Amino acid sequence: MKKWHFIGILLPLLGCSHGSPAENEAQTQQKKDEPFIMESPEPIQEMAVPKPIQKQEQQQQRKTNALLNVPLIKQNPELKYGCEVTSLAMMLKYAGAETNKMKLYTEIQKDPDPLKRSASGDILSWGNPDEGFVGDMKGKSAGYAVFDKPMIDLINRYLPGRAVNLTGKDFENVLDHVSSGYPVVLWTTGDYRLPDRWESWTHGNEVIKTPLDLHVVVLVGFNETTVYLNDPLSGRKQVPVNKKRFVETWKVMQSRAVSYR
């Protein structure tokens, strides 16, 4: 299996931290390609809170647009690799739960398996994000990510029986959920583009293969061409992003998404 060498640059590449080459490349690449983050989004009406709507109206709405006024929370400076729990904090705050990112940091399940590298700097073994957060979320040492199952457990702790795992669903189902008034936490990359830096390591008898430039955001709205995101790393609210290209990246990231009802 091919190995990538990250000696000296491994820590900045892991998880959703600042200063990764992907973010720097994106600034140059966006000058060459069609705009990905749209600086002049089409104005659309915000939906303040979830409210019941008729089935026919719901079908009509999911074809047009929606925008939820989800509070913005920044992951830094406390949680260098904490985009998951920070995004979750935004969603839970919108749902009316009394919590914050640091409380969720202590409560999220963690995989304690330590990072082991070869003499050349390759990752040999580490934790499994399906079981808990891998690494150090605060960034004092290498940190990576956590996937949907531990997040669902945490949602159910605050909203008993209301967690919804949309992982593996069609993106239209995700948009349907947003149009019904519920923000969705989604797994993507730091620049919302297709990942180009993959790594693999062992975890017991398993092999974990995943991109290093993973990031998590909150989907708060959409229209025909655009999705709107609250991004805990950039600290931007309702960031307009090209829908088609965003969905392509989301699918490569295993179509992970969690919410509530």
Rank of each mutant, 00 (worst) to 15 (best):
I7G: 08
I9C: 08
P12Q: 03
L13V: 01
L13Q: 13
S17C: 14
S20Y: 00
E23W: 09
T28P: 04
D33C: 04
E39Y: 13
I44G: 00
Q45E: 09
A48K: 10
K51M: 15
P52F: 12
I53P: 01
E57R: 12
Q58D: 13
Q59W: 15
R62W: 12
T64A: 10
N65I: 04
N65D: 09
L68I: 10
L68K: 01
N69E: 13
L72W: 00
N76C: 08
P77L: 11
P77K: 15
K80F: 07
G82D: 07
L92P: 01
K93T: 14
G96A: 07
A97D: 02
T99Q: 00
T99E: 01
T99W: 02
N100G: 03
N100F: 03
N100S: 09
K101L: 07
K103F: 08
D111G: 01
D111K: 01
D111Q: 07
D113V: 15
D113Y: 02
D113S: 15
R117F: 15
S118E: 06
S118N: 07
A119L: 14
G121W: 05
D122H: 11
I123P: 00
L124F: 02
W126H: 08
G127I: 00
G132L: 03
F133C: 11
V134S: 05
G135A: 07
S141R: 10
K149S: 14
K149I: 15
D153I: 02
L154C: 11
I155W: 03
I155P: 05
N156W: 05
P160S: 06
A163G: 08
A163F: 06
A163S: 06
V164K: 15
V164A: 11
N165R: 03
L166D: 12
T167R: 13
D170V: 15
D170W: 13
F171L: 13
E172K: 15
L175A: 05
H177V: 10
V178R: 07
V178Q: 07
G181R: 08
Y182N: 12
Y182F: 15
V184S: 00
V185G: 00
L186A: 11
Y192I: 05
L194W: 11
R197S: 06
W198C: 03
W198T: 02
E199C: 04
E199I: 12
S200L: 13
S200A: 07
G204A: 13
V207E: 15
V207I: 14
I208Y: 00
V217Y: 04
V218E: 07
F222D: 02
E224N: 11
T226Y: 01
Y228K: 05
N230L: 11
D231G: 09
P240Q: 07
V241M: 11
V241G: 11
N242K: 12
K243T: 04
K243P: 04
K244L: 14
W250G: 01
K251T: 11
Q254V: 04
S255Y: 03
V258N: 05
R261G: 08
